[in-house]
Design a protein around this nucleic acid. Structure first.
Lengths: 109, 109
DNA sequence: CGGCATCCCTCGTGATACTG
DNA sequence: CAGTATCACGAGGGATGCCG
């Protein structure tokens, strides 16, 4: 994760949500608690190592809660914290803008 | 710039605004048209090469207009397009969230 | 199942020098 | 002033294999 360079606060936010799959992870968790293996089936191309890493970063920033069930076979569930939910408006806005942008690009062809 | 991986539209937005200095550049242009050299004095640590590159990406996405004045010495001015202005609410939201996040982190110490 | 360890490679960024 | 041209580096991400 990029350190928050310069004191522009938006860069702090960017540093937290940037990462190839983080937005997608947040989005899926917003739709409900997910298990580790669910992500890999929901998101083709996402490898375990990277998934682990990005979930840990989200967790470190307090956006995500990691619940371990001491069972055999092991079960770990990930969910958005209340703090993570505070990002939802931002995700929605980014999603909306991205959709509009894609439509605009498509219209130019 | 990262290609828009997966079809989650927010990722498209992320791909467009990510870059170490892009948010800052957008922010400064929102405060008014800027010349090339102004950026390098406004933003310590930003080199000419990277500035050029990031401005070109913003321009390629239609967010920024580049106006060349055929004078000696040369003058080039950069400003937000109307389309670029459509990102301002997003920048504000990111900035607000980032500020809150920093306050929260500070309060935890 | 839910990881961690290791190797590798690409890409964004940085440093520096040069040009019209 | 506003770039372009090279070289270099580190981090993020991908592939694979092993473990409790």
């Amino acid at each position: 994760m990029r350190p928050a360079e310069s004191d522009y606060a938006a860069n702090v936010t960017l540093g937290i949500i940037e990462g190839k799959w983080k937005l997608l992870l947040l989005c899926h968790m917003h739709n409900g608690t997910k298990r580790f293996c669910e992500f890999t089936s929901l998101i083709p191309g996402l490898t375990q190592k990277v998934l682990t890493y990005q979930l840990r970063e989200l967790e470190a920033n307090g956006l995500v809660e990691r619940k371990i069930y001491p069972e055999i076979p092991p079960r770990v569930e990930y969910s958005l914290t209340a703090y993570g939910e505070s990002l939802v408006p931002l995700l929605d806005l980014m999603n909306q803008w991205g959709q509009d942008h894609q439509k605009l690009k498509a219209a130019l062809e």
